[in-house]
Structure formats: C-alpha cells, structure tokens
Computed example of a mutant assay.
Amino acid sequence: MSDDTLPPMDFIVIGAIKAATTWLQAQLDQHPDISIPEIEPHYFTREHSRGAAWYRSLFPDTKAAGSLWGEKTADYLAKPEAAERIAKAYPDVKLIAQLRNPVDRAYADYKMLFRRGTVTGPPEQYLTWLDNEQPRFLNDGLYAAHLRRWMRLFPPENLLVITFDDVRDHPQRTLTSVLEHLGARPYDDPEAIARRYNDSSEKLLPMPVRKALAPLKPLARPYRDNALFRATRGLFAKPISYPPLSSDLREHLAEFYSQDVRELESMLGRDLSHWVPATSQTPPSALALQVDEHAQALSNCMHTGGNDEKIT
C-alpha cells in the first residue's frame, strides 16, 4: 500500500458536536466486525494537512473480509470543506448524522468549553448573536442549512439521521437502525448501551491540576476504568458549577433556531416541534435577517471550498 493511499472507509459519523456521537462511537467500537479510531481524526477539517498516510495509520494494517471501517468526527457536519473532501475521497461512504435540540446543543457545547477553560464569560456573551469569538455554539445547530450541503453531494440512502432523543429514549432500537444502515450484523453490549459519555455533571479535577496533568492524559487513558484510579481521582475531583441558561436566553435561542427547525422537519419528514416551544413565534426581523444571511453564507461557502479554521 502506497503512502498516499486512504483507508478503505465504509462509514463516517459526521456530528453534531454534543449530540451523543461519543455514545455511538463506543457502541460501534464494541462490535467485533467494526474498526473505528478512539480519537476524532478531524482529517477532513483541521488535520487535513497531515496527509493520507497519517489518516491510514489510525486503522489496522489489513482489513479483514466482512469487516467495516469508519470514523467519528463531530465537527464535520457544520464544515463545508469536510463535505466536499469526503465526497471526493469517498463518494459511496455511508454517513450518520446525530442531531440534538439545537438550544440544548448550544448550551452543552458552551458548558464543554467552559469546563475546559476555553470560555469564561456567561452564556449571554456567546449565545445571543453569531458575531462572537465562538460562533460554533450557534452555527453548529443550524442543521437544515448544514444537511442541505451533504444532501447535494450524497445520495439520500447514504445518509442516516438520528437524534439525541432517539439515543436517550430508545438506545437499543437506535443502535439497531445504525447497524442496519451500515450493513453490519446485530450486536449489543447492554453495559455499554446504558453508560453515559461526556456527562457535564461528572466531577472534574480543578483546572490548574487538569492543565498540569494534560501531557499525561494519553498514558492515563487505559486506566480510567480501574477502580483504584477512579477512587483516587474521586478524592480530588469536584462538580463544575456552570453559569445557568436563563429562560429569556432559552426563548431567544428557540426564536433563533425556529426557522431552521421547520425546514429540518420538512427535510426529514419528522415532527421536531418539541425542540421549539409553541410560545416561540417567528424570529424578530433582526434575528431572522442574521439567520438568513448566515444560511446564505453557508450556501456560498459550499461553492468556494470553505476554510480550514481550527476549532477547539
């Protein structure tokens, strides 16, 4: 195999961020016929310059007959360049998109970067308008705008869309539908299915300690489920206190996403009205204009190749 040969991929989980994609990755990793890297490669976004040989190195040396190879990178969904690059490299690949109530997703994404220390201000600083230092919080939840891009590049039968609600309420049924989409034989691990991943309520070490220990994180990963390791960590870990999402800001976000959610319902033929409360009316003109302009910019980006901005 030459150094510039890409791995023979069967599927890619494209996101969204904070929509239970880590749960799905864990389920697929348990399947005896599926190979999926533990890390998010980001090969078709910020790590593309590392080249095909690096991407290929994330997979086994050989691919057994009947096995399926895939990866999960949750930022692909919202990145125009990812859709174009994947379509060029793997025009027949199976895609899985996981969506979540965009209001909850935006706040969950904010909380993730808050506990990492990437953002320090209140939610209002980042979740009011797109024009802020973390536009991904709002942008990544405009699912209809993003899925439209993928649907232009791939046949409809190649794309499976599931939701956070599906995983929460019917995990076994959801996993079964995913495996059927991939053409994989039925398989389940009840313990893994019931486990929560990337839980924002999980206790964490103080930020200075986490930063000091960051270089050792890869070495500690194999021991995370060890009882002694967990007990020792528990002595120092503390719950994180997050700035709350106010009812006014939640209503504002529902208005921001209402038009996109309606379009998504039409695209998927699915009722998602519980994502946008009935009290939320048509977005105010200024907010509607911002969403429309941003959607148009996303569409234009589809034809200009996007960009490779690095996200956290």
Rank of each mutant, 00 (worst) to 15 (best):
residue 36 I to G: 02
residue 66 G to Q: 15
residue 35 S to T: 10
residue 78 A to S: 10
residue 74 A to V: 14
residue 21 T to P: 01
residue 74 A to D: 05
residue 24 L to I: 14
residue 24 L to R: 07
residue 58 L to S: 05
residue 73 T to S: 15
residue 38 E to R: 13
residue 21 T to N: 04
residue 30 Q to Y: 01
residue 75 D to P: 03
residue 55 Y to L: 01
residue 36 I to H: 06
residue 18 K to Q: 09
residue 34 I to R: 07
residue 44 F to P: 00
residue 15 G to H: 06
residue 40 E to C: 01
residue 60 P to N: 12
residue 21 T to E: 08
residue 59 F to K: 06
residue 27 Q to S: 03
residue 70 G to M: 10
residue 13 V to D: 01
residue 70 G to R: 11
residue 46 R to I: 01
residue 62 T to V: 15
residue 48 H to W: 11
residue 16 A to E: 01
residue 64 A to S: 13
residue 41 P to T: 09
residue 55 Y to E: 00
residue 14 I to T: 06
residue 75 D to I: 10
residue 22 T to L: 12
residue 16 A to V: 02
residue 49 S to V: 02
residue 18 K to E: 01
residue 65 A to K: 13
residue 15 G to T: 12
residue 78 A to F: 13
residue 72 K to R: 12
residue 66 G to F: 12
residue 46 R to V: 04
residue 41 P to R: 02
residue 60 P to C: 13
residue 70 G to N: 06
residue 69 W to G: 10
residue 49 S to L: 04
residue 24 L to T: 15
residue 20 A to S: 12
residue 74 A to I: 10
residue 67 S to T: 15
residue 23 W to A: 15
residue 57 S to K: 09
residue 65 A to F: 08
residue 50 R to S: 01
residue 73 T to P: 02
residue 75 D to Q: 08
residue 79 K to H: 07
residue 37 P to R: 11
residue 32 P to Q: 08
residue 32 P to W: 03
residue 19 A to G: 10
residue 38 E to C: 00
residue 31 H to N: 11
residue 43 Y to Q: 13
residue 30 Q to V: 00
residue 55 Y to I: 02
residue 12 I to W: 00
residue 26 A to R: 07
residue 75 D to K: 04
residue 30 Q to G: 06
residue 66 G to Y: 13
residue 44 F to C: 02
residue 27 Q to L: 15
residue 66 G to E: 06
residue 21 T to Y: 09
residue 27 Q to Y: 06
residue 53 A to E: 07
residue 74 A to W: 00
residue 24 L to D: 03
residue 72 K to H: 00
residue 75 D to A: 10
residue 73 T to R: 03
residue 28 L to A: 08
residue 12 I to M: 15
residue 34 I to V: 15
residue 19 A to S: 13
residue 20 A to K: 05
residue 56 R to N: 11
residue 13 V to W: 05
residue 71 E to R: 01
residue 78 A to Q: 10
residue 78 A to D: 05
residue 12 I to T: 13
residue 70 G to L: 09
residue 28 L to W: 03
residue 43 Y to N: 00
residue 77 L to D: 02
residue 60 P to F: 06
residue 36 I to W: 11
residue 14 I to N: 10
residue 16 A to L: 05
residue 78 A to E: 04
residue 26 A to P: 00
